[in-house]
Design a protein around this nucleic acid. Structure first.
Length: 804
RNA sequence: GCGGGUGUGGCGGAAUUGGCAGACGCGCUAGAUUUAGGAUCUAGUGUCUCUUGACGUGGGGGUUCAAGUCCCUCCACCCGCACCA
């Protein structure tokens, strides 16, 4: 007989809701554990089988921690601003708010049907004005501290659609929708000064228990590099420029300079003979997107400006070129080129036949750039020195002579924070007619998004808000007129701090009660997909550090331990996608196999961080295991099986039970759910072989199963005669002494190969063990006529005889 | 190109500090049972060898009494970044 999952799952979900079983007490006396999922964007497609993987992992962890006596915060919410809802609104004329609300309802139903132990009293929705009030509040704080500023930045402008596009909406220089041309157009944008935090974001990675790959990605993204900034005079002009280099030691080998095509000095220094060539080149570059400039540029291109820079080390004239391999956004947008010791400069010099001068010995600069370390040559006071020392000496010389300075540069850019969109948090800024700009005062927050009759592009590149009356404001005191900022925040904004609000979700007076934050921060475990490795996790860390600086949060870092769940692939080992028709819908599985089976299967398929293909057969196997458990506990009449007896006598199951408790507890703690579950299976297999099973073991087993398959476990717990939910029952403990048997099996090897096995008392001495091994008949036979050279004895494990 | 990771049966995957390779599940084989089942139970299942045994963790080499695990080298695949001076 198998259990009726539809009945049982409904029954216990109702019970939990009615009894508020998972309500978290913010200020309880218990030790606190905060287990967080990356909250989802509630898309119209509904839940994907990938979602429950991470959610089940944190749920198992949370449920086990509750049973171990911790107060657990395990919340869920909705990252509900975002492009799809806006696009839907533009396409259909419907309201993005309604669309979003509908999607959330679907997601919530689906998530509830999976039996996760969330405290739904703490549900958060980033589009709720009571929530985004505080997102806006944080923005005004950033603005006050000078960390939010406006700058002219190129955006992807699509004239045909009359709108600005996000990078991911531009494919090969055309709009994803409609394939219209997209051009780069400078517009005034809000920027957040994340670069001020670059060093701290980098350094504090050290103390985090995160996958090394993610930390590395963040390190690369921040891209700290040390070097020097060198000032160059321009021959015949009263102008100077600076160039950043990590190899100031090669300054004597700098034979030309290159500016980014957009470099502001180009206009001033270009000679009349070269003007046409330079303009033509710049025009060509302008139509290329960033992607094309970087991706397709294998061959070096450029144009000579006609001007010369003076090498400050040797006063030699260096022709100044422009080329798109130099990026305006990094360093100062100008470089000194050392073709002998830099591959890019070498390629460029070859293409345009520029001089190559060796200053580091050891390579063959007639054939290729030499980038390794070596003794310096042709370098005056650096001659003979190796790289590190030469760099130090050169920086010293530059600083002494005022020609340059040691400098650290980052790849990380400031965060482009505005979006020309309707469906996002309004940026709470007013631009006054006198040209000044003020933040909306805290008492006027939230600045709510107005309802529009129709969401459609403004046509000017501004957000749809630009055409509504909402933008017009008048200062009640002075009567001055103003215009609201029409840009909204990016989707990242709401997710930068949601984990703080879960701690105190309904606080009307502050972002969260500092006392409560102190109880719960930092987050003990944070699980989500690796696609957020850089942006979300870096932005959230940045805001958190800022909030720490202004005294709002008590910790420097938000997420102590991070884990990335792997992807669930389709049966053919390919990504699930609608077009391949291999998408598995959780609703179907919940209805056919039950939520417990889905949870169990997703945890059993493989390690949590691995990408594993879905298997319907594997899913069936998981259900079969739960049925096996059920049949072991419950007989045909629907009451507890006769095999289960109330006894304290020692039974053959004693050892395997204690082993199971030990392994499952450790494995679940370390998120090794696949191996923990396999141990639960071992216990059940052994129990099937036994005539009688002590009830205490079954009670313990059901407790250990309950985090994985909570509905079934609650049902069995009730049948076993317990009245309350299993949620707060004490987690089983094991007795180490029960794990070792009196007799152990010893492997006897000859030359490292297993020849036989013997049983001996567990505390037998080394000498005795060796003797027993040597006396063994089979061994005697095998070593006859051979010389025993050495015997290695590992007590409790093996004896290895070296004989030949 | 740079950085990170992964290679173990027919498949998903297990294997403390080097100490019985293949736990557990899927699949497969045989038997039992059932009116029937894609149900259930029991046993078996790395490869070759009818036995003894030999071989086996991507390939090659090394250290060791003993290597999936440590070292060198090569190969394949996956992820991220990609002219960042």
């Amino acid at each position: 007989m198998s259990f009726n999952h539809q009945e049982i799952e409904k029954k216990w979900q109702d019970y939990w809701a009615e009894h508020q079983t998972f309500k978290t007490n913010t200020f309880s006396d218990k030790e606190k554990v905060y287990a967080l999922d990356m909250f989802p964007y509630p898309s119209g497609a509904g839940l994907h089988v990938g979602h429950p993987e991470g959610y089940t992992a944190t749920d198992i962890f949370s449920r086990m921690k509750r049973m171990q006596g911790y107060e657990v915060l395990h919340p869920m919410g909705w990252d509900a601003f975002g492009l799809p809802a806006e696009q839907y609104a533009i396409d259909t004329g419907n309201s993005p708010a309604e669309f979003t609300e509908h999607n959330i309802a679907t997601f919530k139903r689906q998530i509830k049907e999976l039996g996760f132990s969330y405290d739904w009293n703490r549900e958060i929705n980033t589009t709720d004005p009571n929530y985004y009030k505080w997102t806006q509040w944080i923005f005004t704080k950033l603005y006050e501290k000078g960390l939010a500023y406006m700058d002219e930045v190129p955006v992807n402008w699509c004239p045909a659609l009359g709108t600005v596009l996000a990078n991911e909406e531009v494919i090969d220089g055309k709009s994803e929708r409609g394939g219209h041309p997209v051009v780069r157009k400078p517009m005034k944008q809000w920027m957040l000064k994340i670069t001020d935090y670059a060093d701290r974001l980098l350094d504090d990675l050290e103390e985090l228990d995160w996958p090394e790959s993610i930390k590395d990605m963040q390190r690369n993204w921040i891209g700290r590099s040390e070097g020097a900034e060198i000032t160059f005079n321009i021959d015949g002009y009263d102008e100077q420029f600076t160039a950043f280099t990590t190899r100031p030691d090669t300054l004597f080998g700098a034979t030309y300079a290159v500016f980014a095509p957009e470099h502001p000095l180009v206009e001033k220094i270009v000679t009349s003979e070269q003007r046409d060539a330079v303009n033509a080149y710049r025009k060509k570059i302008e139509t290329k997107s960033d992607l094309e400039r970087t991706d397709l540029a294998k061959e070096k291109t450029g144009a000579f400006t006609g001007a010369y820079a003076i090498n400050p080390a040797n006063q030699e004239k260096m022709p100044i070129w422009i080329a798109d391999y130099v990026l305006m956004g990094y360093g100062s947008g100008a470089i000194m080129a050392v073709p002998a010791h830099d591959e890019r400069d070498y390629a460029f010099a070859q293409t345009f036949d520029l001089p190559i001068k060796e200053v580091v010995a050891g390579g063959n600069v007639d054939r290729e750039a030499f980038t390794e370390d070596g003794a310096h040559v042709n370098s005056d006071f650096l001659n003979g020195l190796m790289k590190d020392e030469a760099i130090g000496q050169m920086i010293e010389w530059l600083e002494d002579t005022g020609k340059g300075t040691g400098k650290v540069t980052y790849r990380l850019r400031d965060w482009l924070f505005s979006r020309q969109r309707y469906w996002g948090e309004p940026i709470p800024i007013i631009h006054w007619e006198d040209g000044s700009m003020t933040a909306v005062p805290e008492e006027n927050l939230p600045l709510e998004l107005p309802e529009l009759d129709e969401v459609k592009p403004s046509g000017t590149g501004e957000s749809p808000l630009a055409n509504s009356d909402w933008v017009h404001v008048t200062d009640p005191k002075t009567g001055m007129k103003g215009r609201r900022e029409t840009n909204t925040m990016p989707q990242w904004a709401g997710s930068c701090w949601y984990f703080l609000r879960f701690i105190d979700p309904n606080n009307p007076d502050q972002l969260a009660d500092p006392k409560a934050l102190k109880e719960w921060l930092p987050i003990d475990i944070y699980i989500g997909g690796a696609e957020h490795a850089v942006l979300h996790l870096l932005y959230a860390r940045f805001w958190h550090k800022f909030l720490y600086d202004v005294g709002v949060v008590p910790t420097k870092e938000p997420f102590m331990k991070l884990f990335n769940q792997g992807m669930i692939l389709g049966e053919g080992n390919e990504k699930m996608s609608k077009s391949k028709g291999n998408v598995v819908n959780p609703d179907d599985i919940v209805s056919s196999h039950g939520a417990d089976t889905l949870r169990l299967y997703e945890m059993f398929m493989g390690p949590l961080d691995a990408a594993v293909a879905w298997s319907t057969k594997g899913l069936d196997g998981s259900r079969r295991f739960l049925d096996r458990v059920w049949r072991l506990v419950v007989n045909e009449q629907g009451v507890v099986s006769e095999k289960i007896v109330d006894t304290s006598e020692a039974t053959p199951l004693e050892k395997v039970y204690h082993e199971t408790v030990k392994k499952v507890t450790g494995d679940f703690e370390h998120l090794h759910f696949n191996t923990g579950i396999s141990q639960l299976m071992v216990f059940i297999n052994e129990s099937y072989k036994a005539d009688k099973i002590p009830k205490a073991y079954i009670d313990g087993f059901v407790k250990m199963l309950s985090p994985v398959a909570p509905h079934l476990s609650e049902e069995m717990w009730e049948l076993l005669g317990h009245e309350d939910t299993i949620t707060y029952e004490k987690w089983p403990e094991y007795d180490e002494s029960k794990l070792v048997e009196d007799e152990v099996e010893i492997v006897i090897q000859i030359m490292g190969k297993v020849r036989t096995k013997i049983h001996v008392a567990k505390d037998i001495s080394k000498e005795e063990l060796e003797q027993k091994a040597m006396e063994n008949e089979r061994i005697q036979e095998l070593i006859k006529g051979k010389t025993v050279r050495k015997v290695i004895v590992v007590p409790g494990k093996l004896v290895n005889i070296v004989a030949n």
